[in-house]
Simulated scan of single mutants.
Amino acid sequence: VILPEATYLERYDPLIKVTQKGLGIALRQPVVRPMYESKPAWWIAKGIGEKLGLSSYFPYKDYEEYIKKQVQLWNIDFDNLKRHGYVGIPGTASPYITEENQPHFNTESGKIELYSEELEMYGFDPVPVYTDIEEPPEGYFRLLYGRSPVHTFSRTTNNRWLWELKRENEVWVNSESARTLGLVNGQKVRLENQDGVRSEPLSVKVTDRIRKDAVFMIHGFGVKSSDLKRAYLRGADDQRLITRYRMDPITGTAGMRVNFVKILKEA
């Protein structure tokens, strides 16, 4: 069963608590109606719950009504929040440490702990210990990836106006590494990772703004859907080359910059 969810521009999302100098509440709200048969996640969950006889867990008509009830508890005017998108909570800004405003940290002692007895209790190093990382094999580079200030992942690479500003990604190669490999700006290459996965062709960008042992790609390009006529096969997909990852044993977060690629010149 496929339950198509509406995009973030077509739905309300849960309220966002913003913590900066002071507390605030941000609202993400729909700017267009959902297309085709897609529905917001709250609508799908509410519908399934009602079919299962769990209507009492969803005591609201729609998500706007649900959010209105939430903000009333904080004495926030919903219409004002909807109009501005953000409302600050008065009296919560206290950026400076004083005798009356002492910081508190979420640790057993309430202080910054350089030696963590909690980590030690769970069998981890109480003080961080550096662990050597795997280096790229001979002829390979560490694959780095990141974002473009113009695009939001692959969501906007087919947008007419943003596409004009950034139409495809390149592979950044250090100038010295490029000279060694005989690469020049604009030259078409493919990347092949340690597991034999090969990218679509993309152009070389020679730069001093990267390490000699790494290459860099902007994420979100190399779209395979021909319906996205502007973005179709523009540049290469970095995700295709990310076939390995490492899990952090303490936080459970995934590290994906552990893949290595070699550069293959296009004929």
Score class of each variant (00 low, 15 high):
V18D: 11
G49I: 04
Y57C: 07
D208I: 02
P90K: 08
L9F: 11
Q70F: 07
R33V: 09
D125P: 02
I89P: 01
I112M: 11
S175G: 01
Y232F: 15
D227E: 13
L27M: 05
I16P: 00
K39H: 00
L183A: 03
L52Y: 12
R28T: 11
P14I: 04
Y57I: 05
D62G: 08
W74F: 15
E5A: 08
F58Y: 15
H219M: 14
G53N: 07
A178D: 07
Q187R: 03
E192D: 02
E192Y: 03
M217Y: 09
P103R: 09
V215P: 03
F58N: 04
Y66G: 00
P34F: 03
R209V: 00
L181W: 05
I97G: 01
G252V: 02
K265N: 01
P249N: 04
K262E: 11
D227H: 13
K111D: 07
P14N: 09
V31R: 15
Y232A: 02
I2A: 00
R246M: 07
D248H: 14
L228Q: 11
R209L: 14
I2W: 05
V206Q: 06
S148E: 14
R142A: 11
S203Y: 08
R160H: 13
L165C: 05
K61M: 03
I263P: 00
V184C: 01
M247T: 13
Q72G: 05
Q194N: 06
D237S: 11
I44M: 10
P128W: 12
S94L: 09
R244V: 02
N169D: 01
S55A: 15
L233Q: 13
Q102D: 03
R33Y: 09
K46A: 05
A41S: 10
D238C: 06
R211P: 00
N75I: 00
M256D: 10
T7Y: 07
N80C: 00
L241C: 07
G252M: 03
F78H: 04
G22K: 05
V215T: 07
S175A: 15
K224M: 12
G182K: 07
G255H: 14
Q72L: 06
F141H: 13
K265P: 01
Y130T: 07
Y145R: 09
T92V: 04
K68T: 03
N259G: 08
V173I: 13
S109K: 10
Q29K: 15
D208A: 06
F221D: 04
W163C: 01
K265H: 03
R28Y: 02
E65H: 08
D79F: 01
R179A: 14
G22N: 06
W172E: 01
N185H: 12
V127A: 09
E192G: 01
F216Q: 06
N169H: 04
K21G: 10
G49T: 04
